[in-house]
Design a protein around this nucleic acid. Structure first.
Lengths: 208, 208, 208, 208
DNA sequence: AATGAATGAGTTTTCATTCAT
DNA sequence: GATGAATGAAAACTCATTCAT
């Protein structure tokens, strides 16, 4: 239901679909929970803090989520969907670049994300989040694999490296630079550094 | 068993000095804590579980650590030291390869490490662990930078990429493959996949 | 029942404003804490006992007080206010007598008070209670000093003794008799003995 | 055995009887316990603190006392004996004055005592200390009563006041001034103020 | 929808005491 | 005599969750 393929190739900044008042509160709670995880760690996320950060009391939180577990699952879901939405129509190497840049731009827009977007293990122990994390990782591999094939057919990418290895060679550096940026609270120009990585990857991975 | 005798004939880093009984208990507690973090997440690590896993009662834990915080800090410290010890005398590209392989071998030897070794953010919120994580990351960059320069001088590595970018291009993929291996509970042959990455890196990064 | 209507026709200090349900619980908890201190000593006052004495669980206590410290501070505050309320309009030596009799009557009404009302030091070590004890002692001195001056002007009290000394000569014996009565669990007729002291003081301190 | 009547009327500053090494440690522990009670309150006295203050470990404390209870009982005993030792041979009103001055001098010598010497209730809840406190109070009454009779026979003290009331009139003010001095950490010249009280008492209580 | 009081189980930590060394 | 590790109980406080209002 949330997968919106944009045929025009543009990124709709905000889906025009208005949130009901109830859904707005849910979002506020999830925002609050995310903020707490990023600033205090998942081990310090409590229902009380999440509720208070959203301007309601602990008890009221249970009107919106069946419990802490569901809240976390929804948070991870939202996290996972986030990057998928903004796909444009690029293909081949341009598709790869778009995939990477979407993630970079997302953490620049929401800097707290830098800290947790690739901390998959953190959610691994929350029952019902584990599967989601796997799916997310797998979806990324699948999406990129499509681009790999296109790029290889188009002669933009050498074809002697298996897709899984390509995935690690290409996504690994971007993940690391985003994690470093988050860890150091944005101490360097992320977009620039990411660009350098992407350009270098393009040049060293091009068909010889 | 982990004590690797340096090829150069220098003093082995860990003198055979036996651990005092007290220090042995500390290690047992840290082992227990590490096991819990890996299997249940940091949010489920309690002093009680850590103590019981080491075969003592909760109260006794406080003979060995001033509290949960100190225990965690010591754990992170031990984690950070772990990979540094096993340096051999390699230089240039061989040094880079050794650096990466040491880490791969370490997680194969202690598979739980795969889950947390690169989850720096997890400890970011524990006061006094944050600095340690920074240092660790920085130390890695410095160590690799030395090899980069040697390799570039030896004509094994192209010299048109700044060290920070090289660091991300080379360490990023290995981090990712280790994280994937941990996340999937060792579902693929890590050493083989790491090798593929290393070989590919060597070939695509060599001086043109 | 303790609300004494002022003879001057002024507003009775405590308006009949009913306590909110929340405030009622606070009072119940403070009552319980006071009972425990008196019967088992401050060293045996625990949050659990205080809560159970008020008919709630330990955790619920924290809805009403931020912690044990705040609870104790509130208790001391209530203690300190207690005797101040019941001032009547007497002046001169009658004022002095009223001051002393109010305290005697209060401990007869609430016999546990006899044990702690003048155990200022007991609360001295509870941060934020210390100041309160000072204020209480000082307030007593100031109130009595007014009566001293009136009595001296009226020729009821010799005027060759400084107020601080008068304070000790007059209040000291009453404090002691109340402490003795509390210590011996009411083994003698307090009012009678207090009267004897007051009468004797009146006679030996009258203007020669 | 400890009651030493000095016929010469002098106060032997320290009994020449040497303490065995064992007894020395006991004293050191009691000193430490007293210091803690005075500075942190009885509710914060722990075996560990008492032991550490005496320079030994918790476990070693049990070589000297059977437990915390016995330690406290011994402390109270020592407290109670303290003032009794230093009796000189005075009689009549001089005896009364000596009784009061001995106590004043003692707290000047050991200022922490000011805080607890008359906080009888504090120890009332320590099993096996309660009786001791009663005895102490009673002994004081008996000792003073002897002097009262002598003074009345000698015409130094009016004889129309029962001894119990005299006890309160005379001891009450001194207790209060000592408590005030302790509470305010020695903010005024105790000896001077005590003197003023004693002189005033002498003058207002003399046979008319 | 929301509040605030309540609960029961859990958290970290401390305590008095014991005991092998 | 003394130490240091250990224990079991209890301390203060927090947490996820429920429910009457």
């Amino acid at each position: 239901m949330p997968t919106i393929i944009c045929k025009t190739g543009k990124i709709p900044p905000k889906p025009p679909q208005k949130l009901t008042r109830g859904a707005q509160r849910r979002e506020a709670i999830l925002d609050s929970a995310l903020r707490i995880i990023c600033s205090e760690g998942i081990q310090n996320l409590t229902t009380r803090k999440a509720a208070e950060g959203a301007g309601i009391t602990e008890g009221a939180l249970y009107r919106h989520f069946s419990g802490k577990g569901e809240m976390l699952r929804c948070l991870v879901e939202r996290l996972a969907e986030g990057s998928r939405i903004e796909k444009d129509g690029s293909t081949g190497w341009a598709g790869i670049e778009a995939f990477l840049r979407v993630r970079v731009k997302r953490v620049i827009r929401e800097p707290e994300l830098a800290k947790i977007l690739f901390s998959e293990f953190m959610f691994t122990n929350e029952p019902a989040c584990e599967d989601l994390m796997f799916q997310l990782m797998h979806r990324n591999l699948e999406e990129l694999s499509v681009y790999f094939e296109q790029a290889q057919k188009a002669g933009e990418l050498r074809d002697d490296i298996p897709p899984k290895t390509l995935f690690r060679l290409i996504f690994g550096p971007i993940r690391l630079v985003i994690q470093q940026w988050g860890l150091t609270e944005g101490s360097f120009p992320l977009e620039e550094e990411a660009d350098r990585i992407i350009q270098t990857l393009k040049s060293i991975l091009k068909s010889p």
